[in-house]
Amino acid sequence: MTRALVNVPKTAKRGEIIEIRAMIQHVMETGYREGPNGVTLPRNIIKRFVCKYGAEEIFSAELFPAIAANPYMAFSTVATESGTLTFEWTDDKGATQSASAEITVT
């Protein structure tokens, strides 16, 4: 199983800027390397990362082969309402890994 770690403040004041961090365990195989037997390792990278705050998409990113293994992303948003932040990573194999975190806005 792939593991993801997300970090969202548990509570925030309305209108406050909060920092969100997300990291996922992934090889990010570039497709340019050769394995021990000389055969090129097929590309397997995370192509897309999306973060939603409730139903609204607040951050998304396209990733490329030059990005290191276990990609880490930090970004910020404005705390508007209590709810769930969901995170979704999709890789070349079509596998999707998701994570979520709750936030209480006062």
Binding site: R3, L5, N7, R21, M23, I24, Q25, N70, Y72, A74
Partner: peptide, 12 residues
């Protein structure tokens, strides 16, 4: 802790 990739293995 939130940016240390080693924590992925610790969590595992």
């Amino acid at each position: 802790e939130t940016s240390n990739p080693g924590m992925l293995w610790v969590a595992d």
